[in-house]
């Protein structure tokens, strides 16, 4: 069954006709060409596909595209661009919060939510906030350092993620 859906992706209106079984992550990647959102496990474990759905971090492989009807979605492409990175992206680059980079888009999206909940997080807050995201390179140490630095940057600027 094909379903007509309307939603907002990175601020732009989207109208798509999708099979009822299509995942939100496949709508983003295959229909809209937004391949920054990665597919790791496709079963809700790894967090590589994390996006924001109406302002909350979700795993786009455990949300059907039809469930996003009427919603606002933000992907990694909606944050910054190479000349003007989002503060969390900038902190990941500065502190080398990545090794192969596959998990990074999901880490950044999850980090944004944890920084909204904990503007001045402890390392324990950061690790708990990234509990739903796996890094197979096990590069967690620098990821935590990057999020800690992003919190400090955002705190100095007085702006939230």
């Amino acid at each position: 069954m094909t379903v007509d859906i309307r939603l907002t992706v990175n601020g732009a209106p989207v109208h798509a006709a999708v099979d009822a079984a299509v995942l939100l992550v496949d709508l983003l990647r295959e229909h809209l060409g937004l391949t920054g959102t990665h597919v790791g496990c496709e079963t809700g474990h790894c967090g590589a596909c994390t996006v924001e759905l109406d302002g909350r971090a979700v795993k786009a492989c455990t949300v059907l595209a039809v469930q996003a009807e009427g919603a606002s979605v933000t992907t990694i492409e909606g944050l910054g661009d190479p000349d003007a990175l989002d503060p969390v992206q900038a902190a990941f680059r500065e502190h080398h919060g990545l090794q192969c980079g596959f998990c990074t888009p999901g880490m950044v999206m999850a980090a944004r939510e944890l920084l909204r909940r904990h503007p001045a997080p402890s390392d324990e807050d950061i690790r708990r906030g990234l509990d739903g995201n796996l890094c197979r390179c096990t590069g967690y140490h620098n990821i935590v350092a990057a999020v800690r630095a992003a919190a400090a940057d955002l705190g100095r600027d007085g702006q939230g993620p």
């Binding site: 809700g44 967090g47 994390t50 759905l53 909350r56 971090a57 979700v58 795993k59 455990t62 949300v63 999850a110 939510e113 944890l114 906030g129 509990d131 739903g132 995201n133």
Partner: peptide
């Protein structure tokens, strides 16, 4: 329960 993303949904 689960992790932050799971708890959001």
């Amino acid at each position: 329960i689960g992790d932050p993303q799971v708890r959001n949904r």
